[in-house]
Design a protein around this nucleic acid. Structure first.
Lengths: 151, 151
DNA sequence: TTGCTCCTCACGTCACGTGAGGTGGC
DNA sequence: TTGCTCCTCACGTCACGTGAGGTGGC
């Protein structure tokens, strides 16, 4: 956690494969400002990503797929998420405990919002599953009756 | 169920409002063959829908939204679903019990596939929720520790 | 040096959104 | 007759897909 471990660096193709998207998606997200366009990179050179970037992308993709959020929605959810990336950086830049507390107190309500979104979706799915199950039961009942009356 | 009740007829705008989509979406789905383009309609005249059509559209939209299926996927899931629409028609056209049984035996595996899809999505969401919850717990723990060490 | 992956345009596609201009039923 | 909703093009948009042609690092 607080040990400065050797950080692995990835190229865009590796990231794409790990996360399950195409390189085009990653470049598009960078274009929209969803992924940090590492200001250091000069045009034409290879894009490089660390593990934090990969984790961030993975989370974005999950919100996109599981909750059906638009990229505009994701920008909002990521805005504060950006603070978490900063968190990672600041964490290694030896911030004071006051800094750490401030960062964590920003991250908590965000995580709560995310969890609430997921719970909402879970409820909707629960409803849907119950409906399908009821339909199935009724179909099986009718099948049994018809089979009996046809014997 | 088997009573020939007065069936309500809806115009495209009413259907759109009930289901929560635009009329454009409905026309597009018809174009793709997802919604029965009532062969009776002559070009330029108003589209008309019965309650079965509305139920069918509602289900398509739910699969689209909750499972993120493409319209191509929906065509597959609807192919057999088409049989269910036929079912409704045939039901009133006084089919034999053999017909009914055949239709129901087609509908059951479809409903089972649909339910399996929903269950799969529920599991994925369960994982995601658990992860977010763990993150939240860890954030709160760290907050508590920092607050204590700052007192 | 030879592959391989990367780069930047840039046009194509899917699932609609959004008017433009016109017709039809209560 | 006056609204209102409907109709059919048809171009725009969002989130990428898919080459075309070229450069860069092991």
């Amino acid at each position: 956690m607080s040990v400065r471990t050797e950080e692995r660096i990835f190229r865009i193709g590796e990231v794409a494969e790990q996360v399950g998207v195409t390189t085009r998606t990653i470049r598009y997200y960078e274009e929209l400002g969803l992924l940090g366009a590492h200001a250091s990179r000069t045009k034409g050179t290879h894009r490089l990503y660390n593990e934090g970037d990969v984790a961030r992308l993975r989370e974005l993709i999950r919100f996109r797929d599981l909750l059906g959020l638009s990229l505009e929605d994701l920008v909002e959810l990521a805005d504060t998420e950006e603070a978490r990336a900063v968190l990672c950086d600041e964490w290694f830049a030896e911030p004071t405990d006051v800094d750490r507390l401030r960062i964590i107190e920003q991250a908590i309500p965000l995580a709560e919002r995310q969890l609430a979104l997921v719970h909402g979706r879970q409820e909707t799915l629960e409803h849907f599953a119950a409906e399908l199950k009821a339909k199935l039961v009724s179909l099986r009942d009718r099948r049994r009756e018809l089979q009996r009356s046809l014997q």
